[in-house]
Design a binder for these strands. Structure first.
Length: 573
DNA sequence: GCCGTTTTCGGCCCGACTGTTTTCAGTCG
């Protein structure tokens, strides 16, 4: 398998970490981190770009030197510079850097003066009181380090967006209950709708003399106050999530909201744009010399740098600023654009509710249609349907559908793609369906090439319509299987089939970056919930969030269309 | 190490809070 972009990013991040500890020029360190970020957020494979002879220095933050290092990584799988660094410094220092409160300077002091090379050694030194004796350290630092090690805080998994949303709702309601509070808003990666969030950034504006920080740290779920100041406080909640509260002046609310929404890369790009115009942009406003000229709203800030408003979901410095400059920002899809769900299960297999109940629940949500897509036979653990049971299910759907005049129930199946690339049910029964969802549920560990060929072969079937959860990832649980998505997308575009954005909170698969890739290649997406019960139909909004991060417009999504229009897009109709 | 609306050299985004400090470095976002 060719070297992946994420591997290049990892190597550059490691180089940056070790150079940082060696106290190299901080801008040199930043250059490696910026390059790492470029590769983590890029869809074309750098290895392919090199093979095609494309110029890597056209990429943001890549100059001659880094381009050469990228070529070395692609050819050898490693970087001599990193190996040299790792000969000088123990690799256990990577873990030390991840401990909150330890940055490159302190890690270096621990290593040089106490010979500490890993977390275990730090723990022993802190317990014996050696750490507090170092210049720049003290009793409190030592105690904080021990506490952090004990809680393994640095390895904590990120919180899924939907779990963060529950926490946000409760906390926002609590803050709003304080009479002095005027506005409350959750910013950060939560507002950008990232599928997982590392911490929460809550912003407030208050009346004069507010005691909001005291109110905040008194919240019942707070287990630890990390920092408490006039305008900023940080706490840890039960469950480990860190929440930062910032108090903003009303006059700079928009600038603060922009700043704390991020992403960091987007902010830097916008601020640089301001610099070119002689303006200073910070969390308090837009300043011309010392005069504030904008910042009450986000719009006023974008106005000053001659850009239209950019939706939070797009603020990743992945082309949105250039697109805004050309006035070519996408008009992002909204929940109200969705007309039906094409992937739900019933009690017939592993769902919790009946066909009638699921249809009624879909109708309640204002949908015009619902496709019943139960599992196929080889999913024995889910009581998958064989041809006989599917035929009966088809009759039941037809019977119920006949009773409805303003709602359509569609006959579908989530048919397994077998390891050899054949579909799990015969064509004779598949042809009786309105559409099919095709899915990989087994043999996740095939080589990248075999997995890709397996799915490509399945796509050859005239009854292949939608590829379900195309990478199989489960957030915080299972990595995506190895597959060449670019080839799959090219094939999907050529064969007129579609890819799913599975809105299940642990899947969100395709992820945003891949949605953007599909859009660029003209592959349309179906956003489906994979609901196994009525309530889960509401996961659609999670899918919409991910789709918006992936630049999708209503036009790019097939289930924004009336059924008659969608039907015409399916092969064979 | 990158990069150019003043630059091929000399800049590089910016501010709050903590802890260890008598005026600030380090960390964090």
């Amino acid at each position: 398998m060719p070297v992946q972009n994420t591997e290049i990013a990892d190597i550059f991040n490691k180089v940056a970490d070790l150079l940082d500890i060696e106290a190299a020029n901080p801008f040199r360190v930043a250059a490696y981190r910026r390059a790492a970020r470029t590769f983590r957020g890029m869809t074309p494979n750098a290895a392919d770009m090199v093979a095609e002879g494309r110029d890597l220095t056209k990429l943001a933050g890549i100059g001659d030197d880094l381009a050469e290092k990228i070529r070395e990584i692609i050819e050898t799988g490693t970087l001599g510079q990193l190996e040299a660094l790792e000969r000088r410094l123990p690799t256990g220092l990577y873990d030390l850097l991840r401990i909150p409160g330890l940055g490159p300077r302190k890690v270096r002091a621990l290593h040089d003066q106490l010979g500490i090379a890993d977390v275990g050694a730090l723990k022993r030194a802190a317990r014996s009181g050696d750490v507090r004796a170092l210049k720049g350290f003290g009793r409190k630092t030592e105690a904080n380090l021990l506490a952090a090690i004990r809680k393994k805080k640095w390895g904590q998994p990120r919180t899924p967006w939907h779990a963060a949303e529950k926490i946000v709702q409760a906390l926002v309601a609590y803050l709003e209950a304080d009479d002095s509070v005027k506005q409350v808003c959750a910013a950060g990666s939560f507002r950008r709708r990232q599928s997982t969030v590392g911490d929460l950034d809550i912003l407030v504006t208050c009346r004069r003399g507010s005691a909001i920080m005291a109110h905040f740290v008194a919240y019942e779920d707070v287990v630890r106050v990390i920092a408490r100041g006039e305008t900023k406080s940080s706490v840890e909640l039960r469950g480990g999530l860190q929440v930062d509260l910032r108090k903003l002046p009303q006059i700079g609310y928009g600038a603060g909201l922009h700043y704390f929404t991020g992403s960091k890369a987007h902010n830097i790009a916008v601020r640089k744009r301001g610099q070119h115009k002689g303006l200073k942009i910070n969390e308090y406003g837009v300043f011309d010399n010392d005069a504030r000229i904008a910042g009450r709203t986000e719009q006023s800030l974008y106005d000053q740098v001659d850009l239209p408003y950019i939706e939070p979901e797009l603020r990743e410095d992945r082309g949105e600023i250039a697109a805004a400059d050309r006035n070519e920002l996408p008009e992002l899809i909204r929940l109200a654009d969705i007309r039906g769900d094409l992937h739900v299960h019933t009690r017939e297999t592993d769902g919790q509710h009946s066909l009638e109940e699921m249809a009624a629940a879909a109708r309640e949500r204002g949908y015009a249609y619902l496709a019943i897509s139960n599992h196929s036979a080889s999913m024995t653990v889910a009581n998958g349907l064989d041809a006989g049971r599917l035929a009966k299910s088809i009759d039941a759907i037809d019977a119920l559908d006949a009773q409805m005049d303003d709602f359509k129930i569609l006959k579908s199946i989530e048919v397994d793609i077998r390891p050899d690339g054949t579909l799990d049910l015969p064509d004779e029964i598949l042809k009786k369906l309105d559409l099919t969802i095709c899915a990989v549920h087994s043999a996740f560990d095939l080589s990248r090439q075999k997995q890709t060929e397996r799915i490509l072969r399945a796509m050859d079937s005239p009854y292949f319509n939608i590829l379900a959860h195309p990478t199989g990832r489960l957030l915080n649980t299972r990595d995506p299987y190895a597959v060449d998505l670019e080839r799959l997308m090219e094939a999907a575009a050529a064969r007129g089939c579609f890819m799913e954005l599975n809105a299940h909170p642990d899947r969100l698969d395709l992820k945003a970056l891949h949605c953007q890739m599909a859009r660029e290649r003209g592959v349309k997406i179906a956003i489906n919930t994979d609901a196994h019960n009525m309530d889960s139909l509401d996961h659609m909004r999670l899918g919409i969030g991910e789709a918006r991060r992936g630049w999708l417009e209503a036009e790019d999504v097939i289930n924004t269309r009336p059924w008659e229009a969608l039907k015409k897009m399916l092969p064979g109709s």
